[in-house]
């Protein structure tokens, strides 16, 4: 029985890391048709902001003066906000090209940048360039490493093993994020507009949806989530400019395996890939876990190219037909 408990407990951090890494990317990909290869660097922005805020590096914002846990929470929320704002900036300049076009229309008389929406391959190349710039700039400005943040809470004992409670709680946070996203999509105005835009952009536009504003909000939301992920993982990682690349691969794979539905897809792929990783890591070692995860992803992409959420869609349709 200890083995089962082991697997269950170790599943939580794996599930959390996949889901948290993927949600930001999934939103942007699902709604805007943009692949953000700088996603890892957005996570890095979140981590760096958390570390700086926590350790008193932000002028005018003495977050490090807050007591106890609220210091960490304050730093994390600050980081998510900063990353969301940064995302907004990126969206306006690079993704939609609004700022350069505004400038060029006044100087050259015509727009120079075509928006990257639905230009999957071009958005990959552009954001890869952005990621190179970000990593190197952060390295030059902040150095090779920032001070860390301690892991809150203590240990969780189970059987004769133990694990950091924080890592288990992250799974709860991941679930909470998914629920919150679901509510946003279903209950808010923005959510409705976003879903309409996913389904049929031109129709949505003709129905009066301001797709430009929807995209702006979406990219900011996705970036904010990436920042939150970075913030949540700050206590667990070494704060270096290259920390994003590990998240990037997992995020990608999870998004593609999950499919177009943000909430359902991420939940399913986090669950499935998390189980595979945990199982193989536990029995054969971390190398096996990693390889197994990647190979399962390959198989899933091949055999269910529309993603796991499309399976759910088909099931739902079939059930509707039967009724």
């Amino acid at each position: 029985m200890a083995i089962g408990l082991d697997l269950l407990v170790q599943f939580f951090p794996n599930f959390a890391s996949i889901v948290l890494a993927a949600t930001g990317l999934a939103i942007i990909f699902g709604i805007m048709g943009v692949i953000n290869l700088a996603h890892g660097e957005f996570i890095m922005v979140g981590a760096f902001s958390t570390s700086l805020a926590y350790n008193g590096g932000i002028p005018f914002l003495p977050i490090d003066a807050l007591p106890g846990l609220s210091r960490l929470i304050g730093a994390m929320l600050f980081a998510a906000l900063v990353t969301a704002l940064f995302g907004l900036l990126v969206e306006r300049t690079i993704i939609s090209g609004a700022v350069p076009n505004w400038i060029s229309e006044r100087t050259l008389g015509r727009p120079v940048v075509t928006p990257l929406y639905d230009r999957l391959l071009d958005s990959m190349v552009a954001t890869w360039g952005l990621s190179l710039i970000m990593v190197q700039t952060f390295r030059n400005v902040f150095g090779n490493s920032l001070s860390g943040v301690p892991i809150p809470f203590g240990e969780l004992s189970y059987g004769n093993s133990s694990i950091g409670l924080y890592q288990v709680l992250l799974a709860g946070v991941a679930a909470f994020v998914l629920i919150a996203l679901y509510l946003v999509f279903v209950r808010t105005d923005y959510g409705m507009r976003a879903r309409a835009t996913i389904q049929n952009e031109s129709m949505a536009q003709s129905l009066g949806v301001n797709t430009e504003r929807t995209y702006m909000a979406t990219f900011a939301l996705g970036s904010g989530l990436a920042g939150l992920t970075g913030a949540l993982y700050t206590p667990l990682l070494s704060i270096e400019p290259g920390l994003g690349s590990v998240f990037l691969v997992d995020a990608f794979v999870a998004v593609v395996v999950g499919g177009s539905s943000v909430v359902v897809g991420t939940l399913l792929s986090g669950g499935l890939l998390g189980i595979v990783d945990t199982l193989f890591s536990n029995v054969y070692g971390t190398f096996a876990g990693r390889i197994a995860l990647l190979i399962v992803a390959i198989v899933l992409i091949r055999f269910i190219p529309q993603g796991l959420s499309s399976l759910v869609e088909r099931l739902r349709e079939r059930r509707l037909e039967v009724d």
Binding site: I94, V112, Q136
Partner: peptide, 20 residues
């Protein structure tokens, strides 16, 4: 040294945006 990657990244960004 220090700024090589930045220049590479800028090159990529500018090309894709302005000269797709």
């Amino acid at each position: 040294g220090d700024w090589a990657f930045v220049i590479n990244g800028l090159l990529l960004l500018v090309i894709v945006l302005l000269l797709p």
